[in-house]
Amino acid sequence: MKKIVTLGEIMLRLSTHVGERLSQADQLSMHYGGAEANVGVSLSQFGFDVYFVSKVPNNALGKAVERHLLSNGVHIDYLVKGGERLGTYYLETGIGERSAAVTYDRKFSSFSHLTVEELDLEAILSEAEVFHMSGITLALSPNLRELALLAMKKAKELGVKTSFDFNYRASLWSQEEASLAIKPLLPYTDICFCGDLDAIYLLGIQQADDVLSKTEKLTYYYHEIQKRYPNIQFMSSTFRTVLSASDNKLQGNHYTGGTLYQSKEHHISQIVDRVGGGDAFASGVLYGIVEQLPPGQLISFATAASALKHTVHGDANAFSAEEVLKFAGTSAGEIVR
């Protein structure tokens, strides 16, 4: 099986039941997840040999994380034990016109104290097909920013494809801080997940003309990003139309070789759990790149994977590649030149 490595924080998620405010709740549902862990779980479901790199406390919650990863086929060989606490976040489930809300409790987590000295990057990345991480990791501590850059450089040195998801979270840091941390990684990035707002506010690209359609604007931004970073071979994102907290429309975008490919628009009604939809999309794109799917089929697969994630509880996707392919159908995505 092909080896994939992801690096990031996995957290305990505590969710309210539908119709309850967090301030009202006296019972919460438990799940485990985090951006890079979710991508790893999905890729394991797709049949890859996935290794998750992180740090968790040596206590019952750390053991629960191990159980979660192992039960989903993810290797924990590089899961460091130590520190004082597992990061936690609270999800107030949305309904109707009321959006979901997230409250983080992750400062001073075990993962935020992870250092490069605790990892053998050469051994971790050796023979991997892809190394994936996100901007959330960069937001958590200076030592993680140092680790992330060294890991990206080592991956490139070893001939490993590198994948970076901007995944900007305003509750974790400012746009200025994010921009300063993200830009040094981009010269070492092969696969990038970013959208128009990332281009404008984190990379400082001039806004596209308002007369352009949203598809034309995204194509312009991707052209401009590739001018600055010609090493980036693939860029992907989604267009999401929120009709209500439980009723969304989703379309995928994938840019490669100077062309933007788009999936059909999925109408996802009666959403069970939106959290992790972007991570499922990212895992679908990575699957398509590793398996060398044609770009139209790749973006159809990735968007279908995200749409399916919305139908199950928890942060991570629970569908095999065969199930996603069946759901996506055989039609190729639309090409937009």
Rank of each mutant, 00 (worst) to 15 (best):
85 R>N: 12
272 V>L: 04
271 I>L: 06
99 S>T: 14
61 L>Q: 11
211 V>G: 09
122 E>I: 11
188 Y>D: 05
259 T>P: 03
223 H>W: 11
288 G>I: 05
93 T>R: 15
32 Y>D: 04
162 T>K: 10
249 K>F: 05
288 G>M: 07
87 G>W: 06
268 I>T: 04
39 V>E: 03
192 C>A: 04
167 N>D: 14
247 D>R: 05
158 L>N: 15
278 G>Q: 07
106 R>D: 05
29 S>C: 05
42 S>K: 06
261 Y>S: 09
59 N>P: 10
269 S>V: 07
116 V>T: 15
163 S>Y: 05
306 S>N: 06
6 T>S: 12
106 R>H: 07
134 S>L: 01
60 A>Q: 09
142 P>T: 03
149 L>M: 07
224 E>F: 08
132 H>V: 07
53 V>Y: 12
148 A>N: 03
190 D>N: 02
3 K>F: 07
58 N>R: 09
324 V>R: 01
300 S>E: 15
66 E>M: 02
109 S>W: 12
193 F>H: 11
175 Q>I: 07
154 K>I: 08
287 Y>T: 11
98 R>T: 08
67 R>W: 00
159 G>S: 04
332 A>H: 08
203 L>W: 02
308 L>C: 05
220 Y>W: 12
199 A>F: 04
312 V>N: 05
180 L>Q: 15
152 M>I: 07
11 M>G: 03
161 K>D: 11
9 E>M: 01
14 L>F: 08
322 E>H: 10
47 G>V: 10
262 Q>A: 05
57 P>R: 11
183 K>H: 02
18 V>G: 07
319 F>R: 10
184 P>L: 08
26 D>H: 15
72 N>D: 03
166 F>M: 11
210 D>I: 14
215 T>R: 10
51 Y>F: 15
79 L>C: 01
157 E>V: 13
99 S>Y: 12
112 S>V: 06
335 I>S: 08
131 F>W: 14
37 A>N: 05
258 G>Q: 00
70 L>M: 03
35 A>I: 07
49 D>M: 08
100 A>M: 00
246 S>N: 14
181 A>Y: 00
219 T>C: 11
100 A>D: 15
157 E>R: 10
67 R>D: 02
153 K>S: 06
307 A>F: 01
255 Y>N: 01
214 K>H: 14
299 I>Q: 01
242 V>A: 13
237 S>C: 06
20 E>D: 14
187 P>K: 03
51 Y>Q: 13
59 N>H: 11
57 P>H: 12
168 Y>K: 14
219 T>L: 14
163 S>K: 04
150 L>H: 12
91 L>R: 00
40 G>N: 08
312 V>G: 05
288 G>T: 08
129 E>I: 02
188 Y>L: 00
201 Y>R: 15
17 H>W: 09
95 I>A: 11
